[in-house]
């Protein structure tokens, strides 16, 4: 399981692409979907690479991204 999980609120996303170029691990990309405003929304195309660093969420002007990170004790167990 990846260290991090991003959840993108499709209806909030305006398809600006800033999160896609900001992610240092190439996790994000454009999906095939458009939301009800017509924006081509971002999605995790390589979710297994996500570290939960929150960089994508920091840059998202529409605060459309939630980030979850594996808790410490859990990651030790998994390791």
């Amino acid at each position: 399981m990846a260290k991090g999980i991003t959840v993108i609120d499709k209806e909030r996303c305006k398809g600006c692409g800033l999160c896609i170029s900001a992610c240092p691990f190439g996790v994000l990309g454009f999906s095939d979907e458009h939301n009800s405003s017509g924006y081509n929304v971002a999605t995790a195309v390589a979710p297994e690479q996500c570290t939960g660093c929150t960089i994508c969420a920091q840059i998202c002007p529409d605060v459309a991204i939630e980030v979850y990170r594996k808790e410490k004790a859990e990651s030790k167990e998994a390791a």
């Binding site: 305006k14 939960g52 920091q58 529409d62 980030v67 979850y68």
Partner: peptide, 26 residues
């Protein structure tokens, strides 16, 4: 998994009227 980033409470649910990619949102 624990939540490490989510919308602040002082923000409403309303979408902003800024253009895509506008740093006003940040």
């Amino acid at each position: 998994y624990g939540k490490v980033f989510s919308r602040p409470q002082s923000l409403s649910d309303a979408p902003t009227t800024y253009c895509p990619g506008c740093l006003h949102g940040v």
